[in-house]
């Protein structure tokens, strides 16, 4: 996936100011930054849900899977019915087999017959991601996937996502939790006020902090990150 010079305005406010992003297969890219930085806007544009005011996104049709922040599924249907519906809508030759595959992948096989509304937020998010994977995308976009999950659910979610990346799927996720971005993101894209401040590995970000705000460089990653943002005027 290649995105070049993405610009988006909401009235007078500029949500994205010429953001570039290129990814390689199997990469785990964390888009992070303070609230209102433009993370969801960038993901929505990459997903094709939102039209940019400037710039372009290059990705093959059907190659990008999108998992919105709030679970996009039918709460009155069962787990299996949701997967089967979206497999059918995706035009799978054998939607039942795809459903079984996703049930296996998400680890929800035993709960296939349960109404989604009765599942925990974490399990709903796993189905949400599984639906996003039904199109067998080369790139999977996850918008704040761990919001509202308890630590145990978060750990299971990241285990699941890391497994996808290990199998070659490029995963781009947004998060405002910098510790999570450091732990699971092989690469960080830091946004602030719609501007891309940093694009590189967590270690490279710490090196930048060491140069720009040495006092915070050896402290925890969140403190170092905040110092970095402050140094850049955010």
């Amino acid at each position: 996936m290649q995105a070049r010079g993405l610009v988006k305005r909401y009235g007078n406010r500029q949500a994205l100011r010429g953001v570039d992003l290129g990814t390689d297969p199997g990469e785990l890219v964390a888009i992070t930054g303070p609230n209102g930085a433009g993370k969801t806007t960038l993901l929505s544009i990459l997903a094709g849900v939102l039209e940019p005011d400037g710039g372009e996104v290059l990705a093959g049709e059907g190659e990008v899977g999108w998992v919105p922040q709030q679970a996009a599924l039918y709460r009155r249907l069962t787990v299996a019915e949701n997967l089967l519906l979206f497999a059918r809508l995706e035009g799978h030759e054998d939607p039942r087999a795809s459903t079984e595959e996703m049930l296996e992948l998400s680890g929800l096989g035993e709960r296939r017959g349960e109404i989604v509304a009765r599942l925990s937020g974490g399990n709903q998010q796993r189905i949400n991601i599984a639906i996003g994977l039904l199109s067998r995308p080369a790139v999977l976009l996850l918008d704040e996937p761990s919001v509202g999950l308890d630590p145990r659910q978060r750990a299971r979610l990241w285990e699941f996502v890391s497994g996808l990346a290990a199998r070659g799927t490029t995963v781009i996720f947004s998060t405002h939790d910098i510790q999570e971005a450091e732990r699971y993101g092989g690469r960080l894209l830091v946004l602030a006020d719609g501007e891309a401040l940093f694009d590189g590995s967590p270690a490279a970000l710490r090196e930048d902090v060491r140069r720009e705000a040495p006092v915070a460089a050896d402290r925890d990653f969140e403190t170092a990150f905040v110092a970095y943002l402050q140094h850049r005027g955010h």
Binding site: G48, A72, Y74, R75, L89
Partner: peptide, 13 residues
């Protein structure tokens, strides 16, 4: 309300 609209209209229908 189920947040399904953007997902559906992203090429599914």
């Amino acid at each position: 309300e189920e947040n399904a609209f953007p997902r559906l209209t992203r090429g599914l229908i």
